[in-house]
Design a binder for these strands. Structure first.
Length: 210
DNA sequence: GCCAGGATCGTCT
DNA sequence: GACGATCCTGGCG
């Protein structure tokens, strides 16, 4: 089970993303705590090497947080309607991150359902826009720390304990669309339902030595 | 300046 | 499976 320090995020998003599966996202707002286990993420590479990334063409006012220090949130507006949330990875200036796509509710179900207009269960936060809505995340969280504060990431059971980790193509992008940079738990009802799920492969456990 | 299009969602057929 | 909502970003002239 990983410790979520700044050093944890100061690595390639391809290392960070699979380890974020099984971690928790927490938001305490107005005395109400909502918490969920992350079940689906997407990695976006830095250094201009990923044409699907918002940071691909370098820093702009919108994506400035992506080029900040690791372990902070990058929140942006999608399609004029939704907010989506990333965690910045690698050293400042790299422009790498991990998009949080879906979570399984663990606490504050009633508050999530209320924010989601009555939708609950698998519809609570099974998509990046749904997740930010259920958690009460807005553009004002852009640039805030993911390590501490009312909105933060916390250790959880980890991907291996939570289920079978899969890797497949990212959703909703047109460039670099075949790269298997999306990670999710196999068969989890809270994961985005997409035909692309069929093209995902099991991620073998990594044997670590020291 | 202008305008095409987007890391989406919900509804309708 | 298709499409409209909705609005901001950034590429281009």
């Amino acid at each position: 089970m990983p410790r979520l320090t700044r050093a944890f995020f100061d690595r390639s998003p391809l290392e960070v993303a699979p380890e974020l599966i099984g971690c928790h996202l927490v938001h305490e707002l107005d005395g109400v705590r909502v918490e969920g286990m992350i079940v689906e993420v997407e990695a976006y590479l830095g250094d201009g090497s990923d044409p699907a990334s918002h940071a691909h063409r370098g820093p702009t006012p919108r994506n400035a947080s992506m080029f900040g220090p690791p372990g902070r949130f990058y929140v942006y507006r999608s399609h004029g309607i939704h907010a989506c949330i990333n965690v910045v990875c690698e050293a400042a200036g790299r422009g790498a991150g991990v998009l949080l796509r879906a979570a399984a509710p663990r606490a504050g179900h009633a508050e999530m359902t209320r924010r989601r207009g009555g939708r609950d269960g698998r519809e609570a936060c099974s998509g990046p826009g749904k997740l930010t809505q259920a958690f009460g995340i807005g553009l004002h969280h852009d640039g805030s720390s993911a390590l501490r504060g009312p909105l933060r990431l916390a250790a959880g059971p980890g991907a291996r304990a939570a289920g079978t980790l899969m890797a497949g193509p990212r959703i909703g992008i047109s460039r670099a669309a075949r790269l298997p940079y999306r990670f999710f738990l196999d068969g989890c009802p809270h994961v985005t339902r997409s035909p692309l799920n069929r093209r995902a492969r099991r991620v073998p456990p990594i044997i670590r030595s020291r």
